[in-house]
Structure formats: C-alpha cells, structure tokens
Write a protein that binds this DNA or RNA. Structure first.
Lengths: 194, 194
DNA sequence: CACATATTTCAGAAAATACTGAAACTTCAG
DNA sequence: CTGAAGTTTCAGTATTTTCTGAAATATGTG
C-alpha cells in the first residue's frame, strides 16, 4: 500500500469498517480512497495505491457502481475509465440511504405484507402476525418520514437537523396558538409505553 | 427447522438479511424467533425450532446480549436461562441505533479527530483532510440530531416523524410571525449546494 | 459433597467469501 | 483487419467466518 500516512489511516479504517457493513475490505478501501482523492482515479491508480490485484479492483468498482456510489467519467484523449465520488457529501448520504432502503427495507416490507395477508392458523401465529404488523408499521413510518425530508434541499435539511427536538417546542407553541379540535386517535394505542 | 410456516418465512428472511448487516445467519434467526415469540425461550427451545447446534445458539445468544438486544430472565423453579426481546418495538429501535453508533460511528469519529489534528504534508493530504472534516461535521450533525430526538418520549417522536417535512411549513410560519433579528450564522457555510 | 442439569468454550470441520492470475473480451486507432 | 490498450470474467486458491461435537465449567439440589 502506497499512500500518504494520513490517507492510509483512513483507508485502512474504512476497509475494516466495511466488514461490519456487509461490504468487503477492498470495496471499502477503494471507496475511501476515491472519497479522499481530489482527482478521479483509474483502476490502475487504485491497484498501485492499495496494492491489490487488478481484477479485485475491477470487481470492487463494479460493486460500487451497482450501489451508485461512484461516478464513471473520462478524460479527453484517454480511454481509461476514471472514477470519483460526488463532491457533495449530502449527495452521498442520500444515495446510501436510498440504496440501503432498496436492498434491505423494500424486500422486507414485501415479505411482511405477504405474510400479513395470510390467515393465522394458531394463537402462536396470531401473535407472530401482530409483531410483524408492528414492524411493518414502524418501517412505514420511518420510510415515510425519510421520503418526506429527503425532498428538502440540503440547506433546509441541515436546518431541520440542527434544530433537532427543539422543533417540539415550536409544535407545542403552535398547538397552543391554534387549538386543534379532537385530533383523531385512529391507531389503537399500545398501553405499555415504559 | 420446526416452525409454523408464517414464522418460518420471517425467520428465514431475517437470517438472510443478517448477512447484509454483518451479523451471521444464526444470530439473525435467533433474534427473529425471539421477536415473534410470545413467551421467552430457552436455549434448548431455540435449538429445536431452528435445528442448529446447541453451541451455535449459545454463541448467538451471547452476541445478542453483547448488543443488548435480548433480555435474560428466569422462571420460578427453573434454572434455565430464558430470553426475550422488549415488547416495545421503539425500545428495540433505540437500542439498535445506540449500539450501531457505538460500534461504527464513535470509532470513526475518534479516528477522524485524530487525523484532523495532524499537519498535512502535501496538497494531497490537505485535500484529504478537508474531505475528512466534511465527514466529521456530517456525523456530528447527525449524531447531534439523534441525541436530541432520542430523548423525546415515543409519542412525541412518532408525532415528529409523522409530521416529516411539514415541520418546515411551521418553521416558515414561525419565522414570519416572529422575525428573528440577525439570526447568527455561526457555522461556516459550504458554498457548493448543487 | 456428589450428582444432575445447564451453559460455555474451543479445536477442528465445513461453508462461504474474497482474492488472484490468466485468459477472454471489448474498443478503438491506424 | 490488426494490434495495442483497457476491462471483465472466471476457475482455482487463500482466507475468513460459521458451525459443530466434545470437553470443560458452572450452578444449583438433595
């Protein structure tokens, strides 16, 4: 591995972190490298800097492309593929969340919906279904929230996040100003709320 | 594997999902089983239902305990260990986020802080540091937001999530109502905002 | 304390995943 | 069409991870 110490530390860390995330070490390292690099890199650059095989880099880049995490581009008069990450880190976050949702939440939701359609054949199944419904509703709430804030432009999003729970204060203020008549309680409430 | 079909579907799915999450199949399956089960289960119950070895279950339970994801309890006159998941799914979410933060974000933040202290030895390192600072600031914003909303009780949290970006509307309204004089812009703004 | 029950540990087998080098394929310039 | 440059694929190997059975350890009970 042939990198400035500062960069190497980060690249190595990301490689290890990758494992906890279900992506392999090389993929993590490639991504970290591209993230830190000012200029787009071609496959050979990556091979040199990380000291892994050309084919491994090829596979890694393919995976990163499948995740939409890297951008492929060309330099005039050079037919090699160059790769980079978006300059805007918020774009990266958005892509990451989007892709993870697609791979992890969506299939789970499909399965939950299917299972929830079925007729429980026992008390045990009935209870299991109830638990699955809770999970389904939770995911729905969470993805709904995400779909919603995801549309905000970055500035407003940051504003919202910075505010955090202080929003709550404003909400209360609003409630006091405009008394909402009988805000409907449709969802059956879970009594246990520790 | 000896489970009602409906439960089996879910358990199997979670097992597979586990792989994408850096936890192994058995751990995923054990957790899914406990999540769906009305009654706490002991290790032998789990062995029977999942059809894996006793030692594998022991390891799996140990890992789930390390994650704080299962609760250990005892039945009177029975010295076996029984395991269950919290009834409140929001408690589960909180634990999950907490633990992932502890294992993934915190070590990364430590590393970022260390690296940001160092003196860059080249333009390349300078740029890399700049990128790391962006990541650092991003994580700080995100964890700050989380630390904040995490304190809300579940009802208010749900309220907030349900509202989503509509909060924005209320914020604008507030701004119009109470014109804040010279709202200080402490945080240095990133010019690129695509 | 001895015996039964319950749990954990651990070395090695089995399975899954990552990685490599060589070959195959693609694209483009001349 | 040919060959050079670039990229991907793939079969085999290496590495890592998961899983098991057997042994060790712990925790009661009579």
């Amino acid at each position: 591995m042939n990198l400035p110490p500062l960069v190497q530390t980060f690249v190595l860390h990301f490689g290890e972190m990758g494992s906890r995330w279900g992506i392999n070490r090389t993929v993590g390292q490639i991504y970290a490298l591209l993230y830190l690099s000012k200029e787009p890199l071609n496959a050979e650059d990556i091979v040199e800097r990380l000291g892994v095989s050309r084919s491994n880099v090829s596979m890694g880049l393919k995976e990163l492309q499948a995740w939409n995490l890297v951008r492929l581009q060309h330099k005039p008069g050079d037919r090699r593929d160059y790769f980079s990450t978006p300059d805007d880190i918020w774009q990266i976050v958005r892509t990451l969340v989007e892709e993870r949702k697609k791979r992890e939440i969506d299939p789970t939701m499909t399965l939950l919906r299917e299972v929830l359609m079925q007729e429980p054949a026992s008390t045990e199944e009935r209870h299991a279904q109830e638990r699955m419904r809770e999970m389904h509703d939770l995911f729905e709430l969470l993805t709904g929230w995400y779909a919603d804030v995801q549309r905000l432009d970055t500035e407003r999003l940051v504003q919202l996040l910075t505010l955090g729970s202080k929003v709550q204060k404003i909400l209360e203020m609003k409630d006091r100003l405009f008394v909402v008549p009988g805000s409907k309680k449709s969802r059956r409430d879970d009594p246990k709320d520790k």
